[in-house]
Simulated scan of single mutants.
Amino acid sequence: MEKDNNIYRILVIEDNPGDFALIEDFLEDQIYLPEIFQAKNFKEGEQFLKETGWAINVILLDLSLPDKSGEELITEILAISSGIPIIILTGYPDVAFSVRSLSLGVADYLLKDDLTASSLFKSILYSIERKKKSLELEESQKRYSDLFQLSPQPMWVYDINTLRFLNVNNAAIRHYGYSYEEFLTMTIREIRPVEDLPKLDEQISLLRNKTDVHYGGIFRHCKKNGEIIWAEIQSNAIQLDNIDGRVVLVNDVTERLKYILEIEDKNKKLREIAWMQSHVFRAPVARLMSLIDLATNYENTEVEQREFLDKMLTSVKELDTVIRCIAGKTDEIDQ
C-alpha cells in the first residue's frame, strides 16, 4: 500500500510504552516518515505545546495520565492547544463520556481496543480537514463581519419570516438613531411610514416566494426622531445562524431626490418663461408695431392719432407687465 507523503507532525500524550509503540507503528504504516513527538504526562504535554505547539497538526491524547485525567485533562489541553485537533484514545468504552468529550471540543473519540492503522489514519485526516474547513469558515465569517461593520453605508440583516432585525452595522445605528439593542427588538415594519406598510407587505410576499431574488428600489424610511427619508435599498438572500434572511444595503438619497425636484421645478419655470417670450410677449409687441405703422404711414385725423397713442400706451403697459413677470420668474429660479 502506498503511504501518504505529506508532512504530519503528531504529538502523542501517552504514558504507556506499549500503547505508544503501537500508535507509532500504526502511524508509520500509513504515513511516510511521520514526525511523532511523545509526552508522558500532562506537564510534558503542556511544556511542549507552549514551546513548539504551533507546528503540530494533531494531538493524540490518552485520557488517563499520571498527573491528570478525564474531563479535567481534556479541558486543560483544549485551553493550551490553540485549536489543534485533539483525538482521544482510551481503553474505557463510555458512550456518555464520549459524547461529553465531543461537546467539549475534541475532534474524535477512539477506543484503543478497536484501533487499527487505517481507522487511526482516517480519524487524523478527517480531524485535520475539519479543522481546515472550520478555519476557512471562521475567516469567511470574519470577512463578512468586517465588510458589514466597516461599510460607510447602513446595512442590516432581517428574518424574512418574522421581519425582525438580526444584525445591524454601526452606520445604520448612527444614521437611524436607534441603538443596537433597540434595533434587535424591532421589525423592518417599524422603520416604514404606516401608509407605506401595504406596499411593504406585497414586497415581502414576493421575496418569501422567491428567496434567491435580488431586490432593490427606493422607499420611505422613518428615523427614530420621526424624520422621513428616501432610502435606496439593495437586498439579497442570506443564511444567518440557520435563519432565512435578507441582507440589506441602504443609500440615503433624500438630498439627491430633493435636488432633482428642485431642478425639475426650475425647468418648469424656464418653460413658462419661454412660453411667455414666444406667446405673451409677442402680442403687445405685434400690436405696437401695427399701431406705429398706422400712425406714421397713413393720414389720420387728430382724434384717430390720439386713439392710436392711447392704444400704444396700453400695449406698452401690457409689455411692461409681461417683462416684470418674466423678471420675477427669473429671480425665483436664482433663489
Rank of each mutant, 00 (worst) to 15 (best):
Y109C: 10
E195L: 08
I191V: 15
H214G: 02
D331M: 07
T187I: 12
T187A: 02
V95W: 00
G226H: 14
F37D: 13
P93E: 13
R174I: 05
V285M: 11
K210N: 11
S278V: 05
L22C: 06
V106R: 01
K131F: 05
L65H: 13
A295C: 00
Y298S: 00
V95T: 14
T162N: 07
L135W: 01
R164M: 08
K311D: 07
R287M: 12
N57Y: 00
E28C: 00
D159S: 13
L22D: 00
E318N: 11
A117L: 07
P152H: 01
Q239D: 15
V12P: 07
I333W: 09
Y180C: 12
E181K: 14
E307K: 09
D67P: 03
F121T: 03
Q203H: 11
D67V: 00
V157W: 13
N251T: 14
L197G: 01
R306P: 03
L49S: 05
Q149G: 06
S119H: 02
L313C: 11
K329C: 02
L22M: 09
Q30K: 09
A21R: 14
E51C: 01
Y144I: 11
E190K: 08
F219V: 12
F148P: 03
P152I: 05
V316H: 03
V280T: 14
T330N: 04
I233W: 08
K3Y: 09
F281A: 13
N225V: 05
D212M: 06
L137V: 08
I87V: 15
V213W: 04
I74H: 04
N236W: 06
R306E: 13
A96I: 15
E262P: 10
Y144H: 09
Y8A: 00
N167R: 13
K133F: 10
I260R: 15
L111K: 04
S179M: 04
C222Q: 15
S64E: 09
E272C: 07
M289Q: 14
T185N: 15
L110T: 06
F42S: 11
R324V: 01
K317T: 03
D320W: 03
R192C: 01
L319K: 05
L137N: 10
K199V: 14
F37T: 14
K43D: 14
S82W: 06
V58A: 02
R256F: 04
N300T: 07
E304P: 07
E332S: 09
D293S: 00
I160P: 06
I173W: 00
L78S: 13
D146E: 07
K112V: 06
I204S: 05
R9D: 15
S98I: 07
T52R: 14
